[in-house]
Amino acid sequence: MSGTIGPYKFTLFVAGKSPNSQLAQDNLNHICSEYLRVWNCKVTIVDVQKDFQKALDYDILVTPTLIVEGPRGRSTIIGNLSQIDSVLVTLGCD
């Protein structure tokens, strides 16, 4: 799974310690370590329950929401990131 380029800036919006929020973080960590070069990944986690203003600024409606800023520009992935294939396609490393 080489072929990947970077760098990637991830902003993951989660809601407290809900199971989906936890899963999304785990899945994102897994993707970064398995498919991307970890040093190319900058991950920021935003808990919307603690920082609603950030949620407003990014127009976050649902959680988890992952905002990706990478070589292909900016894209949005919603859900707990369990469907890894669709995430990889979005990241451009299929």
Binding site: V48, F52, L56, V62, I77, I78, S82, Q83, S86, V87
Partner: peptide, 18 residues
């Protein structure tokens, strides 16, 4: 937006709550 797994409306709730 690409959908990858389950999600909920908690983002909206957080904004309304705040």
């Amino acid at each position: 937006a690409v959908v990858s797994g389950p999600f909920s409306l908690k983002g909206l709730m957080a904004i309304v709550d705040g």
